[in-house]
């Protein structure tokens, strides 16, 4: 198969004396949903903050489409097309949907906003993701439901044609119907050729959309397996540390 778009090798991260990532490997491919699971405190959020350049790794290799890169700040990650949708959705309540989707990369003409252009692109992006729940793109984000906010956050990453979209617990705070919508959105995103890395606690969600499952346990990647080649009870075993994965490379 072709080169993975993201390939981490032996990355580490410590906070003072606490070693949170102890030499982790991870691969993600375009067009696939790569799930990252693990118990609370396993280091999932820390792992993706490194990919986002928000909290760089201490040591280890990051390859993007085969090239060694250094992800030392968010701009660098964003330049490569890596976008993160955080668990605590990084949206500004006081701004509207368009303003949030374009935050940090607004379209301007002569130094002033081209609101029309931004509005059109935001609207088209939401439409292309078959979003039907949003009435107006000029609604303040504070007035949106949890699912709608998640949608806006995902659409935000799609807007600038991200190559890698990382979702941290996208369904954690959602009800049944909204979870369904967001999972469908995640699948459409991957089918459009994006590499999706999805963190989740919910194995039902993971088995519903993921192509590949990676399990993090106390800062180590203890399993990396095709969804079709495993089952829920094995994955639970890896997560809790009661079962040891006998498969591929560490």
């Amino acid at each position: 198969m072709d080169v993975p778009i993201i390939e981490l090798t032996a990355v580490t991260k410590s906070f003072g004396p606490v070693s949170v990532l102890k030499g982790v490997a991870l691969r993600a491919r375009a067009g696939e949903v790569t799930a990252l699971v693990g118990d609370n405190g396993a280091g999932k959020s820390t792992l993706i903050k490194g990919l986002a350049g928000v909290q760089p790794y201490d040591t280890g290799e990051v390859r993007f489409a085969g090239e060694l890169v250094s992800l030392s700040n968010p701009r660098e990650a964003s330049r490569l097309g890596i976008e993160v949708v955080y668990q605590d959705l990084a949206l500004c309540d006081n701004l509207d949907i368009v303003q949030n989707m374009f935050l940090g990369r607004e379209e301007t003409v002569l130094g002033t906003f081209d609101e029309g252009e931004m509005e059109r692109q935001a609207s088209e992006t939401l439409r292309s993701l078959s979003v039907r729940t949003v009435k107006s793109v000029r609604q303040k984000v504070s007035s949106l439901s949890g699912g709608q906010r998640q949608t806006v956050a995902i659409a935000r990453s799609v807007l600038k044609s991200a190559k890698v979209v990382i979702l941290d617990e996208p369904t954690a705070a959602l009800g049944v119907a909204q979870t369904e919508q967001v999972l469908a959105l995640v699948r459409r995103l991957a089918d459009s050729g994006v590499a999706v890395i999805m963190i989740s606690h919910n194995l039902i969600d993971v088995f519903a959309v993921a192509d590949h499952i990676n399990v993090l346990y106390l800062g180590q990647m203890v399993a990396s397996v095709e969804t079709s080649a495993t089952n829920s009870s094995d994955v639970v075993g890896y997560i809790t540390g009661s079962k040891t994965y006998m498969g591929a490379s560490e």
Partner: peptide
């Protein structure tokens, strides 16, 4: 302008602003 928009963004959610670069 971006400067103005970012003032509002920081006031609304400074962490979101930081993550947006």
């Amino acid at each position: 302008t971006k400067f103005g928009r970012y003032i509002y963004a920081i006031g609304g959610n400074a962490e979101a602003a930081r993550r947006a670069g």
